Amino acid sequence: MLTGCWDAVEINDLSLVQGVGIDFVEDEKFPLQVTLGLMTPLSSAAESQSSSPFEVTTVKETGDSIATAIQKARINTGNELFWGNNDSLIISGAVAEKGILGIIDYFARFPEAVLRQKVFLTSKRAEDLLNISSSHGKKVPDLLQSFTRLEPGLASNLLELLGMINDVGETALIPYIDLFEANDKDIVLSFSGIGVLKKGALKAVIPQKQHDELLWLRGELNSSVVYIPNPQKEKEGFSLHVYSVESTLKPEIKNGQWIMTVEIINHAEFYQNETYLKTISYQEKETFQTMARNEMQKRFAELIQYAQQDIKLDIFQYAEEFYNHYPKEFKNVEDQWEDVFQNMDIRVEQKWIIERTGLMNETSFPPERGE
């Protein structure tokens, strides 16, 4: 007796989920709206007239929970939903401010969900991001897949987000993305900041310009490109490609003072020199390294002040480091960790090694008059 594929589903009866958007709607009974970006196989006749064998559509439904809204959307499509291709979960900022723990719990428990799907926040409606075609000729779910491959740094997937939420500091970071109109016709997807969540609720948004400094102080930066202005001469500066970063976090408790020392060794090369200094000179290279160290020290201090005094949140996840090194002491202050973090002495020790000058050793700038 041959059973065959008794539970098989024909591909024409499937809709492939490419992205999920979560929004609020003005409905007291069904306040949550779920928008699904779907790819549905075309019929043979329709496929012959199209350049793609799939039709990209969106389906939206409301419900009193994520589970009920998605179930209603599945019935609305008339097809079985295949979640194996889903690569993006987009949550509006309004939803995140109320809390996303229930949303994350659903996708973590849902047996068909993909834990590698990327999680994003947006100040727009998530529905709009899934509806609008980009200037690249792709729907936003497809563009997000390219975006997460090209954009370095924080691109939390669902599994990583679960880890951050369950860390002792209960602070999670999620990339903020938005759509911007480049001109009358083109719409561009852009990384606009980093959402900071405490116990699952959005509390602050770190500006995009501090993205690399944040990763540096978390010990997670791999590479970067930085512009260093010359403090001695206006409109002069140089750009460095930091191609290797060695970071070490050293927590310490001394005489009741909680201290975090961040040791950073940056290996860099010149990308651009808009100064009159020569990159090949040993003495002037020391000057370049000193300027880079001083400028980045200032930027680190600004971010530390922002975290400790303005938003008062441990965005660097130092709680986990202290818990691992001083578990007993951390347990005694766990409930007052925010106060401990605000008074923590955060020290940044940098070493810059500029090893490469690029293809040209000399400066393109002519010598200053009088030299």
Rank of each mutant, 00 (worst) to 15 (best):
F365G: 01
D184K: 12
G370Y: 08
L150E: 13
E284Q: 15
L36H: 06
N294I: 02
P251N: 06
E263S: 15
F180L: 11
R299W: 02
N157L: 04
E295C: 04
E28K: 14
M260P: 07
L101T: 15
T3S: 12
W6Q: 10
N166V: 00
T248R: 13
V188K: 15
T261N: 05
S51Y: 00
S192P: 00
N86F: 01
I165H: 05
A67I: 09
Y176W: 02
Q336V: 04
K312L: 05
E213T: 15
E236P: 02
H241A: 11
A268Y: 01
W258R: 04
N266D: 12
K198C: 02
P41H: 04
R74H: 11
D184I: 07
Q317P: 00
F316W: 03
S65T: 15
V114E: 09
G78F: 11
M291T: 07
I228R: 03
S88N: 11
N343P: 00
M1C: 06
R109P: 03
I11F: 01
E80L: 05
E181I: 01
L189I: 13
A204V: 07
R299E: 14
F110V: 02
S92D: 03
T77C: 11
G256T: 06
V196E: 03
D23R: 05
P251F: 05
Q350V: 01
Q145V: 10
A94T: 10
T148Q: 09
W83V: 01
I90G: 01
T290Y: 10
K72C: 03
D335I: 01
V262D: 05
I353A: 12
T357K: 11
L313V: 08
Q297V: 00
F288C: 03
P41V: 01
N76E: 14
E160H: 12
N166F: 03
E263G: 15
P251E: 09
N183W: 08
A8Y: 14
P327R: 06
N324Q: 13
G78M: 08
F288Y: 12
T261L: 08
W337S: 02
V333L: 01
T148F: 08
A69V: 09
G137V: 03
F24G: 05
I103T: 09
G193V: 04
L249S: 06
Q18D: 08
G137I: 05
E368Q: 13
D345M: 07
T3K: 10
I100S: 07
L249E: 10
Y282R: 12
I315R: 02
F82G: 06
K185Y: 14
T279E: 05
E151L: 01
D184N: 10
Y318W: 09
V34H: 06
G78R: 09
F110T: 03
A301E: 12
G200H: 06
I91P: 05
I104K: 04
I346M: 04
Q257K: 13
E80W: 03
G370I: 04
I104H: 03
Q309D: 14
P366I: 13
A292I: 08
N332Y: 00
L221G: 04
A108I: 07
Q145N: 10
D23T: 06
E234P: 00
L221T: 09
T122V: 06
L81A: 04
E236W: 01
E80R: 14
V59C: 12
G137E: 07
E274A: 10
A307Y: 06
T357A: 13
Q342S: 15
V17D: 02
N230R: 13
V225D: 12
V25Y: 10
E234K: 15
T57H: 08
N230M: 09
A73V: 12
Q305P: 00
